[in-house]
């Protein structure tokens, strides 16, 4: 995963960027088993995000053109879903559960401790571009609350004194 795209121009002729062969191939593979191309909208956004780390305006225009839909209609989809990032994120997204089982087990206090650990608030990225901190709803591991997701790894029974060890594993 990279954060390529963070510096790209999004004006005039540069508004539509070129999707890679690999991205196009994966999107076409989704379109092939769906009744119409626009049904692949969410899959296409996720595929491009997997390659580029986030979905820039220029990426959005390119995907919309590939699927034969307006960029506005595609952005209405993109902005609905919390796992589609319309802003750059760090190399690892830390998602801290704030739903009720974790709340009961001290998630509010843990949230303050994690924010202090990184020196950032929810929605922000550490200055070194390593971590972005976001709240998330119930991660479905409530018997081991409080929980969080670091990248693709579920971390359970989180305690403040383990934070250094947990995050050290993610470069």
């Amino acid at each position: 995963m990279t954060t390529a795209g963070a510096n790209e121009a999004v004006s005039g002729a540069d508004l539509i960027e070129t999707l890679s062969e690999s991205e196009v191939a994966k999107i076409e593979a989704e379109c092939a088993h769906l009744p119409d191309r626009q049904s692949a909208a969410i899959d296409a956004l996720m595929i491009v995000q997997e390659h580029r780390g986030w979905v820039s305006d220029a990426s959005l225009f390119a995907i919309a053109r590939l699927l034969g839909m307006s960029a506005e209609a595609l952005d209405a989809v993109a902005t609905f879903y919390n796992r589609i990032y319309r802003q750059p994120v760090g190399r690892h997204v830390v998602m801290l559960c704030d739903s009720v089982s974790c709340y009961v087990m001290g998630a509010d206090r843990l949230a303050e401790q994690v924010k202090a650990h990184f020196g950032i608030d929810f929605g922000e990225t550490t200055p070194d571009g390593r971590f972005t901190l976001l709240p998330i709803v119930c991660l479905g591991a409530c018997d081991h609350a409080p929980t969080m997701l670091v990248g693709e790894e579920l971390v359970t029974d989180v305690e403040a004194d383990r934070l250094d060890d947990i995050f050290a594993r993610f470069e």
Binding site: S99, V100, C138, G140, C142, D143
Partner: peptide, 9 residues
């Protein structure tokens, strides 16, 4: 995604 639910996982 129903908060407190962890059976299907």
């Amino acid at each position: 995604m129903e908060p407190g639910t962890f059976k299907d996982r």
